[in-house]
Design a protein around this nucleic acid. Sequence first.
DNA 1: TCTATTGGTTGGAGCGCTCTAACCCTGTAA
DNA 2: TTACAGGGTTAGAGCGCTCCAACCAATAGA
Lengths: 333, 333
Amino acid sequence: MVRPTMEDVALRAGVSRALVSLVMRGSPKVSEMRRSAVLKAAEELGYSPHAMARSLASRTSTVLGVMVSDLHNAFFAEVVDGIDEVAREQGFDIIINTGGRSPARERRALESLLSFRPAGLILLSPVVPATAIGKAAEQLPVVLVARSSRVSTVDTVNDDGETGARLAVDHLVSLGHKRIAHLDGGEGTQAGPRRRGYVAAMEAHGLVPQVVSSEYTDAAGARAIRALLTDDALPTAILSCNDFNAVGAISALEDAGLRVPSDVSVVGYDNTSLAALRHVSLTTIDQPRAEFGRLAADALLQRVREERTEPVRHLLNPSLVVRNTTAPPGGQR
Amino acid sequence: MVRPTMEDVALRAGVSRALVSLVMRGSPKVSEMRRSAVLKAAEELGYSPHAMARSLASRTSTVLGVMVSDLHNAFFAEVVDGIDEVAREQGFDIIINTGGRSPARERRALESLLSFRPAGLILLSPVVPATAIGKAAEQLPVVLVARSSRVSTVDTVNDDGETGARLAVDHLVSLGHKRIAHLDGGEGTQAGPRRRGYVAAMEAHGLVPQVVSSEYTDAAGARAIRALLTDDALPTAILSCNDFNAVGAISALEDAGLRVPSDVSVVGYDNTSLAALRHVSLTTIDQPRAEFGRLAADALLQRVREERTEPVRHLLNPSLVVRNTTAPPGGQR
DNA sequence: TCTATTGGTTGGAGCGCTCTAACCCTGTAA
DNA sequence: TTACAGGGTTAGAGCGCTCCAACCAATAGA
C-alpha cells in the first residue's frame, strides 16, 4: 500500500530526481539513453506520478471541477459527456461532485471541489446563491451551465428557453390549436424564459395565454391537469415545463378518459431519454446537451489559459422533436 | 485569483502557522481566544485549507473516490446518495468520475481518481477488466458495487439477482401464469444471476423456462418481443432483465395490438424512476440502492481505518413492487 | 523556594514534486 | 591554445500544509 516516489525511480535508474521529473513531463531535453532507463525503472517499480504533489509544486492544475446539481437527471450526464470530451482532448481531467439539489449540500460540494484547487470550475444548474458563485469566481475561472449570471468574470451557457417555447407554440398553432395552456415550472431554473416565450408566442398569434402553476415533476404535472379538468373549457393542447411534467399530465388526462393526442396534445421540454421511449414517444423540445458541455469546457479553458477576459454568454438554439403526443385538435385522427 | 495560505491567516491573526493548522483541524488544545481570532482572520481573508497540501503533508486523505460507470443511469445516482450520506457523516468527501461504460475511458477515470491518492475507492458497476481492479486494490482499499470479485482485498455489495428473479416468477405464477418468458440481459452486469434465478424458479414450479436473448435497452426489449411474436404460442407473461427492456417490450406488445396486462403481463427489474411514473406504472423488482451506497461506504471506511482485513460480501435482498403491468392471464380483467 | 506538571504555542523538518540557476561536458570558433 | 556556446544534467529552494519535539508560562506539589 505504499507507492514509490520519484526519488526511488531516480535511485534505481542512477539519475537525479530532477531528471526523472523531466522524463515524466515528456521534456525533449533528455537523452534517449536516460529516458529509457528512467522509464524502465518506473515501470519496474510501478511508479505513477503523484498528481497533487505535482500540482502543489507547479502551482498549476490539469483538473477541471464539475458540480452537477442533480445526478438523478440524465440531462447532466450528457453535458458531462461534452465536457469530458473537450477536457480530455486538451489534456485535462475532470472531477465531479454533486449537490443533490440541496443548497447546503451543494455548498459543501463546492467547497470540496475548491479544496482541490482545480484549474477551473463548471457548475451545472447550481442552486446556491449568486454570492457563493461570485466568491468562487474570485479564486478561479467559473462557467455556469443552465443558469444565468451577471458577473463579468463568469461565462454562461444556456439554451434559449424563449425560442424553445415559441417553437412548441408555433407547432401546436400550425396543427390548428388555439386553446394552449402552459404548465409552468415555478421557481425551477429556466422556467422563466420558457414561460415568457410561451406568453410572447401566444400573443404573437393573437391567442390568450393560460399559465397554470406547476413544477418539474410528473406528480405536479398530473395535479395541474386535475385542476384544469374542473374547468369548463379544457385546453386542446398543453405545453409542459419539462418532460417529466408532460408525462404526468398525460397520465392524468388518460385517467380522466381523454386520449392523447386525439383529445389533447401534449408537448414536453428537454427531450430526455424518457421522451424517446417508444412507449412515451413525447413531442418535445431538444437542447443540444453535449454541445452545452463542449462550449462550457472551451470557455473555461480559454479563461484558464488566460486567452480571454471578456465574459461569454452562449445562448443555444433548441429544436422541436415531433413524436406522437401532438395532433390536430378536435378528435381528428 | 490568488488564494491566501495559512501563513497569511497566521500573520493576520498574530499567531503561528502551526496554530492556524490546529484550529483548521479542530484541535481541542487551542484557547478560545486564539481560535476565534484565527477563524475571524480566515473568514476575512476568504481562506479555506488546501486539501492537496494537507493530504501531502499528512500522508492521509479524507477523500473517497467514486467511479460511476454510467452517469446516464439514475440507478447510480441513488447509490451515490447513500455513499455521500455515510461519507459526510464520517468527515469524508467524495469525488466522482465516470467511465461512460467504455473500458478505455473508465481506465483513464480510474487513473485520474488514483492520482489524487484518495483514502479509498468505490467502483459502481465497473467494466474494466478484473486485473485493473486488482492493481488498484494493491494501492488502496476498493469496494465494488453491482459487480462481484474473487479478490480477497476487495469488498463487494450486490443485490441477490437470483432472489429477485424468483420473486418475479413467484408473483406471476401466483397470478396463474404458466408460460413465462425471460428477456435476458446478455453480457450485462447481473444478467447471469437474474437468468439463473428465473430458470431455477421456473423449474421449482415445474414450468419450462424460455430465455430470449436481449439487452438492457428499450429497443432491445421491443426487438425481443417482435421475435417472440412470430412464434405460435406467445407467453402470457414476460420477465424483463431491467425496466428499460420492459418498457420497450410493452411498446412492442401494444404496437402488435396486445394489451398489457390483460393479454400479456410484464415485469421489469430495478424499480427505476421510470417504472414509478404513473404513465408506465411497471411491476418491477426494487433494489435498495441507497443501502448499497451506505454499505459500500461503511465497508470502505472500515478498511481505511484498518478495522478489518477479511473481505465482506454483501448480498442484499430485492423486493417486489406490484404496479399495473401484471394481472391474471387469459384476458381476465 | 524549587521542581513537576500541564495546557497552549511555536519553529523546523519534510511530504512528492517542479523550477531555476548553475554546472559539466563536448564541439566549434577564434 | 583559449574562449564560448549549448545540450544535457543536477542541487537546492520552495509549493501549503502536518507533525514532532521543544518551549513557555502558569499552576500545583514538595
